[in-house]
């Protein structure tokens, strides 16, 4: 078993084992705010302790340039939001960083290790785990099997050792214990034996996040964690995202809901037409004229009338639906 796998597995284990108390939740948030205090509010700003650094990432589909990012850094231990209008290239950028797609040019590194040309599964093993915009719950596997799948460095995943339960049985029990702990934390323990396909949209999002944690990541990348989630569950999901930071993980997420972005993120990166156009803490970014122009078109007032809000929402929904349809098309 490669060393990085063992480490990642071990780290994930301790991270979930030592849950922080409510008091330290503020602590991590303040620490992140403090670290980012002196960072200039401009695209490509250097961070004091970057976990991910990307340079000159470019991806073209035919004649269309989907992503063209000069330079971007992500602060370790912070929650960073990636926002931008539809077609801004956020998901493509996610795909590139996590090895699910290869850029035409560009270099990027995670923890100082170059990830150019590194396959998606290796990126995950290095500690950078993602979720998907359209949840990928493995519907014909049970919830607990979904969770167990997430654990890395499993002896029984080797075809020869798989034949003998005595070789992997003990480890399987450990993994199951850890999975059960996480399920309890995500309030999915009652659904343990259900097929993942029978869960609601929000529960699938929770399952996907919990399953990602089984990998023992240092950094979690969430592609629209709130999309399609029942409002009753959003608060709990938000809490879970914040908990990730408290557990010492770095979070990058794509989101459309500005209130949510303002609520949980320490830093916001704005993309439009494939480029990073602005960076900064949530409040400052949302006041930025470039962002307002790119994101909301003419609706530049911070406070929108109810009518305007409805209109923006309808537009966003329409665009989302289109993107989703596209995705489905691609998935076929």
């Amino acid at each position: 078993m490669p060393a990085d796998q063992t480490e990642a597995a071990a780290e994930g284990h301790t991270a979930t084992a030592s849950r922080p108390d409510a008091g330290s939740r503020r602590g991590r948030r303040d620490a992140a705010a403090l670290a980012l205090k002196d960072v200039p509010h401009e695209p490509g700003a250097p961070k004091p302790d970057p976990i991910l650094v990307a340079d000159g990432i470019k991806r073209q589909f035919g004649g269309l340039t989907a992503v063209d990012v000069d330079h971007v850094e992500l602060q370790r231990g912070a929650i960073t939001a990636l926002i931008g209008p539809n077609g801004a290239g956020k998901t493509t950028f996610f795909n590139l960083l996590t090895g699910f797609d290869q850029p035409n040019s560009g270099i990027w590194s995670f923890n100082g290790r170059s990830l150019s040309g590194v396959a998606a599964h290796r990126v995950a093993r290095l500690g950078m785990v993602r979720t998907f915009q359209l949840t990928k719950a493995l519907s014909k596997l049970t919830v607990i099997e979904n969770m167990r799948l997430g654990a890395t460095g499993q002896r029984g995943e080797n075809v020869f050792r798989a034949l003998f339960r005595s070789v992997w049985g003990a480890q399987e029990r450990e993994i199951t214990t850890r999975a059960d702990d996480l399920l309890e934390r995500f309030k999915l323990d009652a659904k343990r034996q259900d097929f993942a396909g029978s869960l609601s949209g929000g529960q699938r999002k929770l399952l996907e996040m919990a399953r990602a944690l089984m990998v023992g990541p240092e950094m979690v990348m969430l592609d629209e964690p709130m999309a399609g989630v029942n409002p009753a569950l959003t608060q709990s999901l938000l809490g879970h995202v914040k908990d990730l930071r408290e557990d010492g993980m770095t979070v990058l997420f794509v989101e459309h809901d500005m209130d949510m972005v303002r609520d949980i993120s320490d830093w916001v990166i704005v993309m439009a037409q494939g480029k990073v156009i602005a960076e900064g803490p949530p409040d400052s970014v949302m006041g930025d004229q470039r962002v307002i122009d790119a994101y909301l078109g003419s609706h530049h007032d911070a406070v929108l009338t109810e009518e305007e809000e409805q209109e923006v929402l309808a537009k966003a929904e329409e665009a989302l639906e289109r993107e989703r349809a596209e995705n489905e098309e691609t998935a076929q």
């Binding site: 998907f132 493995l138 014909k140 890395t152 990998v215």
Partner: peptide
């Protein structure tokens, strides 16, 4: 388990390392 998961969605399995 990995095989069955691949049958369901291979990108998800890839994202789990």
């Amino acid at each position: 388990r990995v095989l069955k998961a691949i049958r369901e969605d291979e990108d998800a399995v890839r994202s789990l390392g």
